[in-house]
Design a protein around this nucleic acid. Sequence first.
RNA 1: GCCCAGGUGGUGGAAUUGGUAUACACGAGGGACUUAAAAUCCCUUGGAGGCAACUCCGUGCGGGUUCAACUCCCGCCCUGGGCACCA
Length: 982
Amino acid sequence: MKYNHNQIEKKWQNKWQESEIYKADDDSKKEKRYILDMFPYPSGAGLHVGHVESYTATDIYSRYLRMKGFNVLHPQGWDAFGLPAENYAIKTGVHPGKTTQKAIKTFKKQMSSLGLSYDWSREINSSKPEYYKWTQWFFLLLYNNGLAYRKKAKVNWCNSCQTVLANEQAEGGNCERCGSLVIQKDLEQWFFKITDFIEDQEYKGKEIKGLLSRLDTIDWPESTKSAQKNWIGKSVGAEVDFIIYDEKVTVFTTRPDTLFGATYFVLSPEHPIVQDQKSKCENQKEIDDYIEKSKKKTEFERTDLTKEKTGVKLKGIKAINPVNNEKIPIFIADYVMMGYGTGAIMAVPAHDERDYEFAKKYNLPVKEVVEPFLIDQEYKIRLDKKTEKREVVAIVVRDPENDNYLCLKWKTANWKSFPTGGIDNDSKVEAAIREIKEETGYVNLKFIKEISKPIYATFFRPHKDSNVIAHFHYLLFDLEDKKKVKVKQKEKDLHEVVWVPKDEVDSFINVGNQNLAWKRYIKGRVAYAEEGMAVNSDFLSGLKTKEAKEKMIEWLEEKKLGRKAINYKMRDWLVSRQRYWGAPIPIIYCDVCGEVPVLESDLPVELPVDVDFKPTGESPLNYSKTFHKVKCPKCGKDARRESDTMDTFVCSSWYYFRFADPCNKKEFADKKLIKKWLPIDTYVGGAEHTVLHLLYSRFFTKALQKFGYIDFNEPFTKLRHQGIILAEDGTKMSKSKGNVVNPDDIVKEYGADALRMYEMFMGPIEDMKPWNAKGIVGIKRFLDRIFDFLYEDITGMFVDDEERKTWLAGKESIDSPNEIKIIINKTIKKVTEDINNFKFNTAISQMMILLNYFYTFKNDEDIFPEGGKFISRNDFKKFLIILSPFAPHITEELWEKLGHKESIFKEKWPEYDPELVKDEKIQLVIQVNGKLRDTVEVSVDISEIEAKKIAQDLEKIKKWIDGKEIVKIIFVKGKLINIVIK
RNA sequence: GCCCAGGUGGUGGAAUUGGUAUACACGAGGGACUUAAAAUCCCUUGGAGGCAACUCCGUGCGGGUUCAACUCCCGCCCUGGGCACCA
């Protein structure tokens, strides 16, 4: 009989829908687990295979945890506000609520056809007033605590459409819809003060950990954490007050140690001081023109690195450098941004690449104030006789640390780092190194290795007096007996070496993109932006960069000319959207009282539904009179509502709280229920949310903690991403290319179980991987084979076999032979561990191995008539149980066929027997000089002596070692023997 | 440019974290069953040489450490992702 996936899957999906086995229990005393997918935007295109991947992963994990005895919360909802539905409405006039509702229906149907075990009783929809009432409540919470504020900000504005555009609609500087030029316009915008939560803070005796410090403590992918860190972009430095005509102008710098090297001053064109001082300049028109020009430039153009930097000198005025009272010229240039630091910089062309580029173009002086630690450097040049190429193989420099000469670069050693020992916590080792250095004149480089014991160190000699070197010439010392262990020298690497002074190196040094800092600096091509030693810097001269920075800050603070300062790249979160399909911002503008928050009792501020979706290119909200007409909550006079809505990221920053208590009418969620379910134990979603959604959610959680609503600080304890599934040709799936795989088609042809398992089997969940239409047949075959293995037996293929009859009759006490038990137990162990680690691909391959084993066992005709060996029913059931989270339909079906009335998902997850998982016999690997020459089956705990004897007696081994001197034999217990011969 | 992740057969990918490289699956080749095809089952499948036993080579490239390296170290190349005149 053939497994009819369409019929059977439908049957179980219907049964599951009726039962309540996936419901999370608010009252259960069992330990909870909250497993969450990022809730999807219900797009008209329906579910795609990428959704299927992550939803299957969490589904497997949730099903597994339920069987493990946990009280699992695994809900799903809809991130239903958003641009596409609104754009569609503008085009067609269909209300976005309708479009969204339709899409949700499709999504739900598709999810059900995949057998996903969501608790649908907790479904939420961010576009419903019951939900966005609380989004607005959050806005008020932040507003009332000074964390939401309004200020002018630049937006992309299209003059012909008379509307604000999102960044992605203004890409390339032109309006997506009409193609006309997008300009930057200042408009009043709402912001959330997310920057308040970057660092740790104290509030009413509570410590609120910040966005930065907590990153180290959560179980997230490293790349995501570092992306967030990067986004926050903390840099520590100083603010320094320069004087322009008695007016103080502050700059921010991370290199206060280079203050003496400032040769000019640059202001952002938008800097207010430009307007103040303009009148004193000789070239006012030129200045105005430049400001006007840069205003027209889009953000995109201004940050185009390939374009040459431009600027205009403010002729007639100078800035005074507070450290030496030097008067330096002032420029305005749009490579300085008003949005970062203070909008003004001191330019140190010798040590900043951008300043250097600018200085070269406008012929400004370059003053070096930092020098690399290269003093008395000498270069060794290798002459390659064949190619006649000359290459620097070594630079010998003086290490300022201990006055030693060191080999800075020795062929492959790092140019940038100065080797100075390597082990600094073990004084015994250090002393030994020092002694060896003194005795031999060798200089120790960085190769120090601890190989159990003793400790070895590798030393290099600077080769000062030889003109022939071998570049692998080194000594290996045993530090305990201070004995020379080895000298290595390869003859092929002998080269003639000449000494060349610094300036001659220039003509042939190989400037690639390697070792850039050093090589470029040597050639005087670009600024030296690394650390080094301060020179030409008055009281800083002779200090290392780190110390010089500290000293300069100290000096500035003492003289009140500057101060230590920290800057962040991250800005406050702009939440206003001039759009219809979002949660309205609950603010009222009154002519008398000004900006007034809507009363909490008046929430929600509902979106008007009686609006027209004429294709005007503007938000219909602007025209709704019923919406705007309102009385001021303070004075009762006529007032007007804020017409902007909130960024959809606001809705998605708190939705995971709502799942704990989705129908609450009094609070966003009950405190007790939040305590019961949150934080989320495992959160899975696309890597495209590494920064924004995750950062905003962390911000909301921290704000809630600060104001006493919750007592935890991070919403997502463990986070995993799913990788993008590419089309078969290795490119991104896209409608326009027509290479999109529709999961519905796959479900129809192969079944939901096959699709689920195939996507899990494709590779690690987080990897980007191409779809392969043929790959799924392997999974389909696997599922069919399971069905055949059990089902055909039941229906009579082996019915005349007495022993099988016994098995089929359900005598579960009859045991499988040991070999079957062992592999089953190993599989249980592997699958359990792999699910916990989200390594579903290897879990599936292990189950395939198990089934292959079952088949060879079944096909082995000798086994049945003889010893009465067969796979016990109990053992086969264990296999079905561990497979069930992956392939819920087929396992549920077979479970029923085995005579069970209850769902397989009410079963307990099987435990493995640790005794059976242990290997008793192993294939001992015999190597000769590290190469595999033979294997032999022995008991795991074979002794070293015995193993060595066996190994040397093997014919194959004898062949290799006969007549050779055995240097030593390495024995790794339970693994291998390596015979080392000369 | 900076920061992250990665590079293993014809393909997707395994490899207990230094110990038999290529598990599992796809594809390909051969065979069985069949009038035939599909389905199913069995065998072969990294490369080179050899009748064979077997030998040599092989995890992006070049080096190093080690009895032993896909794994660790140094230098480079390439691919993907994020950030980017951030002072």
